[in-house]
């Protein structure tokens, strides 16, 4: 399996008669090295404006507020590292982190495997737009409504799922109500909403793999499983990296489902980090402290994303 990076492939395979591919390591023509930056700036301009105004500025503001005592309704007062000191000793913050990680593990684990399977099944079995459309349906329904419909369907006394369990002779389960099942339940509800969508992303990646590769492997007598491990997975890597980075970050920000169902309970079993931030900011008016939790979460996510990108070498492609 070739694992050359784009950059290397440029230097490794210089083609006579063409200009050397853009590369930092080889010696390109000066025109190109200096030339791409202005062009890049033009291409980046609109996105950069949006980024600076609607993301960077709020982020910087949040970072600043994390060093203040700010109740939202009165001007912020500088508090130095107080919020961060409080954070380290806050039992509920660590609990929120733990609960969130539990959620992410179940959510991402199940969702990624199911979506990958689903995408490969669709890719190998059918081009039916109908099936893809059906699988995407849950994504069309707003988070809040998805949470509400499952919440009623899973009710221990009145929910249809428990009615069905009763019909087949099983005891009802209080899915959202037990401290032990609440988080996995919320995680699986969100798998239901996002699995088709994730599968669609992966499916788009599968489409980008040339059919000729599979045809060649099939002529060589490779089995489906072998093709999956040796062709599909490696060639899917950039897209998988994308999907994983996006879904993990999204998963950490679980909020809506908790807000309309368990509201953090029972006890603190589903008090996920984002819900905790919301409570601190908008219900308890500890905006400065909420900002500090937010910065902590941001650092964790950024670290995680960097790690994932490194591990999955998202910038590379085997298809070159």
């Amino acid at each position: 399996m070739r694992t050359s990076t784009e950059r290397q492939s440029g230097t490794a395979e210089p083609r006579p008669g063409t200009s050397p591919p853009q590369s930092d390591t080889s010696a390109p023509r000066p025109r190109r090295r200096a030339g791409d930056l202005p062009v890049a700036m033009v291409f980046l301009l609109p996105a950069a404006v949006g980024f600076a105004v609607f993301y960077l500025w709020p982020a910087l503001r949040t970072a600043y507020l994390s060093f203040t005592d700010y109740s939202l309704l009165a001007p912020p007062e500088w508090a130095g590292l107080d919020n961060y000191r409080r954070l380290l000793g806050d039992r509920l913050f660590w609990n929120a982190l733990k609960v969130t990680v539990e959620y992410v593990v179940v959510n991402i684990g199940v969702q990624t495997i199911a979506a990958l399977g689903l995408a490969v099944l669709m890719h190998r079995l059918t081009r039916s737009g109908l099936i893809r459309g059906v699988l995407l349906l849950p994504y069309l329904v707003a988070n809040v409504v998805v949470a509400l419909i499952w919440y009623t369907m899973l009710d221990a006394q009145l929910g249809i799922v428990n009615q069905a369990l009763e019909w087949i002779g099983l005891d009802p389960v209080a899915f959202f109500g037990e401290t032990s099942t609440a988080i996995p339940t919320i995680a699986l509800v969100n798998v239901w909403r996002h699995v088709g969508y994730t599968a669609l992303l992966i499916f788009a990646g599968l489409q980008a793999i040339p059919k000729t590769v599979y045809e060649a492997a099939a002529t060589d007598g490779a089995s489906e499983a072998r093709m999956f491990w040796r062709i599909t997975l490696p060639l899917l890597r950039p897209v998988l990296a994308l999907v994983l980075v996006l879904t993990v970050i999204g998963s950490f920000q679980i909020f809506d489902t908790v807000a309309v169902t368990t509201k953090g309970g029972p006890i603190n079993a589903t008090r996920v980090i984002y819900y905790y931030i919301y409570e601190q900011a908008f219900q308890r008016f500890n905006f400065g402290y909420a900002a500090a939790v937010c910065v902590a979460l941001f650092a964790i996510l950024a670290g995680l994303a960097l790690l994932q990108l490194k591990l999955l070498r998202a910038g590379d492609s085997d298809l070159d």
Binding site: A47, F51, F54, Y55, L56, P58, A59, T62, V245, L246, I249, G250, Q253, F255, Y274, I277, Y278, A281, F282, A291, C294, L297, F298, L301, A302, A305, L306, L309
Partner: peptide
Amino acid sequence: FVFLTALMIPPIFT
């Protein structure tokens, strides 16, 4: 990567 980090800012703060 800086662009990417924008994903990590919770919407309640933006």
